[in-house]
Amino acid sequence: MKIEVTVNGVEHSAEVEPRLLLVHFLRDSLELTGTHIGCDTTSCGACTVLLDGTPIKSCTFLAVQANGRAIKTVEGLIRNGSLHPIQQGFKEEHGLQCGFCTPAMMLVSAALLEENPQPSEEEIRWAISGNICRCTGYVNIVKAVQWAAANGQSERAQT
């Protein structure tokens, strides 16, 4: 089947098998390897991307379902060569260790901040509760999101 998908602002058209998972389309066809696979059952969230701004788990979403829609992956967070505030926040607050869950965690958090620029800790924890991190114990991930919330507006204004 032919699909047309906008990924990180770039339009792609491709011929894909109907059963091709979106995560494989992104990783293998477009070579956007920042999106990871952790569980195959929509449990861990390592494959999360934004579909028209909403987080979805791309390991249980078909590439054909993304036809005509806009996807954002971790590679699309950078704007004009500068890190997105959420990327900066993860660096500042030691929000990552092995880094495997990090792209998805950042996308989920960025989506939260779009909707709710000053979330409470509880709101952050709820927003990222579909994503598993094995390394950090989440405390510093929460701090990273808070860092982005506190520093995001000024940085956004600059870009």
Binding site: R27, L32, T33, G34, T35, H36, I37, T73, V74, E75, L77, I78, L83, Q87, Q88, F90, K91, L96, G99, F100, T102, P103, M106
Partner: peptide, 14 residues
């Protein structure tokens, strides 16, 4: 961290 937050880690499956 810089490579990981950019999605530029180099894991086996990559």
């Amino acid at each position: 961290d810089e490579r990981f937050v950019r999605g530029r880690g180099n894991y086996l499956d990559d």
